[in-house]
Amino acid sequence: MNPTDASADDTLDLHLPEEFVALFRTAGDDATGDEFAEAATARAREDLLDGLADWGPRDTSAGVFHLVPVDVERDVALVARWMNDPAVAAYWELTGPQSVTADHLRTLLAGDGRSVPCLGTLDGVPMSYWEIYRADLDPLARYCPVRPHDTGVHLLIGEDADRGRGLGTELIRTVADLVLAGRPACTRVLAEPDVRNRSSVAAFLGAGFRLAAEVDLPAKRAALMIRERAERETP
């Protein structure tokens, strides 16, 4: 589930038109245009994933699951250990010293909010790593058709004991439910695991995704997995 390049040189620019900035002006405001632009940009950063940090926990058959945005100082050692697990390293390509993982996380957190790194906890215990991202603002959009507000997921299950027993399928379904509940404008949840990662593709299929296509991305050939918003999930 290697993510597409998260570097600042390979993202789709988010432009804030004057009419958008004007929405933040009120009568009597005397702030400069730069200050308005800064406030508008901060608001856009908060809103790109509709307050993911406040989506809250969900009950699952395995326990209470919660997506918790990463804190680098608190979480980097754990995430780095997972990234150096051979079963993970083959697809994420973030092996090496802890600084490699720290740089990756800081790049995401320093961005405009289009991709949010999270820990997935079960009953309060961190056991998985997730990146929830705006697929329509991601380099992925250069390689396959996307719709406005399409939301993507990358994930890894951290511990070997949690793999191969259906837990991934359960959590993928749960996270897709969280995305669709938390983002009313989103009609599809996307994923693009490496086609070689058969267990990942199977987990997405089991979670209600369909295989839409195989897509050649810069670092891999990906299985484009899509879960559509069901009629009963319409906001």
Rank of each mutant, 00 (worst) to 15 (best):
D5M: 11
D9H: 14
D10Y: 12
L14T: 10
H15M: 13
H15V: 14
F20V: 09
V21F: 07
A22H: 09
A22E: 14
A22L: 09
L23N: 13
L23V: 15
A27L: 11
G28I: 00
D29Q: 02
D29R: 06
A31Y: 15
E35R: 15
E35L: 12
A37E: 11
A37Q: 08
A39G: 13
A39P: 11
R43F: 08
A44P: 15
R45L: 07
E46L: 12
D47P: 01
G51S: 00
G51W: 00
R58T: 09
R58I: 02
D59P: 13
D59M: 14
T60P: 03
S61K: 08
F65W: 06
V68Y: 11
P69V: 03
V70P: 01
D71S: 11
E73Y: 06
V76Q: 08
V76G: 03
A77T: 06
L78E: 03
L78H: 05
V79L: 07
V79I: 10
A80G: 07
M83P: 05
N84D: 05
A87L: 07
A90Y: 05
L94Q: 08
T95I: 13
P97A: 12
P97V: 14
V100P: 04
T101W: 10
T107G: 08
L109E: 01
A110W: 04
G113A: 02
G113Q: 01
V116L: 14
G120W: 10
D123L: 08
G124Y: 11
G124I: 11
P126W: 04
P126L: 06
M127S: 11
M127R: 11
S128K: 02
Y129T: 02
A135M: 03
D136F: 04
L137P: 15
P139N: 05
A141E: 04
Y143G: 08
P145S: 03
R147W: 03
R147V: 06
D150C: 07
H154K: 13
H154I: 07
G158C: 01
G158W: 02
E159L: 07
E159W: 01
D160G: 10
D162V: 02
D162F: 06
R163W: 01
G164A: 15
G168Y: 02
G168M: 03
G168C: 01
E170W: 01
L171Y: 01
I172H: 13
R173T: 08
T174E: 01
D177C: 09
D177E: 10
L178F: 02
T187V: 11
V189R: 06
L190C: 12
L190K: 09
D194K: 00
V195S: 08
R196W: 10
N197K: 06
S199K: 08
F204Q: 09
G206V: 04
A207T: 08
A207V: 10
G208T: 03
F209N: 04
R210I: 05
V215C: 05
V215W: 00
D216Q: 12
R221E: 07
A223N: 10
L224T: 00
L224I: 00
R227C: 02
R232G: 15
E233P: 12
